[in-house]
Amino acid sequence: MKASGGILAVVGAVLALLNAPGASRAADVLRIGEGPFITGGGFLVADQKGYFKKLGIDIEKRMFIDGQQAVPALIAGELDLTFMTANASLFNSIARGAPLVVVLDRGNNKAGHGYTVINVSKEMADAGVKTLGDLGKLKGKKIGVSGTGSINQYVFSLALQRAGLDPRKDVTWVTNVPQPDLMKMLSQSQVDGTDLAYQFGFFAEKNGWGPMIATGDKIDPDGTIGVYATRQALLREKRDVLVRFAMAYLQGAKEFNAASVAPDQHPDIVDILARTTALQKPETVKAIAPYWSYVNEDGLPNVGSIMKMQDYWADYYDFVEKKVSAERLFDLSIAKEALARLEKEKPFGK
């Protein structure tokens, strides 16, 4: 039986809508691993402002307190994309065959936007540890960090070396302790120094548990804080979806960066970050600006910084068993294509 011209017209109109750019389709679901950290501000802004939906992507979030915890879910196919830090375990996982590839920047210690911070105990501050140059006084002391081979241990190690110490033998590392617990340990002088996310360093200083003496951008300018990684197969299977995700994300990152230097001019961004991170209060979000980290607006991860980290963990600490090449670690084409399309198509009118 032939369909009438009217029915054919309706069917054609429906198909046109389904195939239109930005149309929501089942294939356009992305399962994302995220955390309640302000370094994810680009993603949080894009999500809350509906930018992913505008480009036809439904986001399914799974929250993790640490990017390392999301890696098994990504490898198992339970996630399509996840945040993670460039730590020693990432390099080891890829060297052992994990099908992971880094595709986007998620935050770095750009000058003036340092996200990591070194705090020392009040006792050490009273003993004269006031600046990076004073860290030599930490010889024989305990340094607390959230993970072995973490970005926090990396930054603190570099700072100790500048002060003339060998971080492998001149201090005792207290590792794998959650950052909120490290704040308490600092207050009780159970650790003498620690490297924290800025908000935790801010809370520690504000509560009189130990002052901040230097931000990460003074120690490792442009050093990577976080990245987004996906499975290699998805670069083929969901390439267009990943590109559209990156387009929305870059728009969110641009607005996030602008708000970090002028939070009072962007109350909508401040409100989003207060609601979606552990900071909770707009006043706190504004108080720690501009130390939210910085997201590269072209989306490109800081390749040189990450390769430098791998060299450090392999050559200095022996934490990395086998180095992997930059060609194996990164795929920069997603970010490049997303930026080109964003500038050409201007889907957000900006």
Rank of each mutant, 00 (worst) to 15 (best):
V29L: 11
E34Q: 14
K139H: 13
E343F: 04
Y291G: 02
P301R: 08
A73Y: 14
P180E: 11
K169F: 02
D105W: 01
G6Q: 15
T276A: 13
V71P: 04
V295S: 12
D315A: 15
S146P: 03
Q48W: 07
Y294G: 12
A340V: 11
T85F: 01
F245A: 00
I288H: 07
Q265A: 14
T39H: 04
V103F: 06
I225E: 05
P301K: 05
P21F: 08
P180R: 15
F37S: 03
G201T: 02
R96E: 08
Q280K: 15
T116G: 08
D298A: 03
I65R: 15
I213D: 07
E205Q: 14
N302Y: 10
R239N: 13
L30N: 03
Q251Y: 07
K139I: 05
V243T: 06
Y115C: 01
A197N: 14
V14S: 11
T230H: 04
G41D: 04
K323C: 04
T230A: 11
Y316P: 01
G22V: 14
A326C: 06
L160P: 01
Q188I: 10
S150F: 00
Q232C: 14
I334V: 15
V14Y: 09
G114W: 01
A86Q: 01
V101F: 07
L132G: 03
D181K: 15
K130M: 08
G133R: 00
A326M: 09
N176R: 15
V11I: 13
L242R: 00
P21Q: 09
G33V: 07
G77Q: 12
Y51I: 03
P263W: 05
G133A: 05
D47I: 01
P99D: 06
E343W: 08
A3V: 05
K61H: 12
L339Y: 11
A95E: 10
I118E: 03
P180A: 06
A289N: 12
A111F: 00
V324K: 09
V320N: 03
D181H: 14
D240L: 05
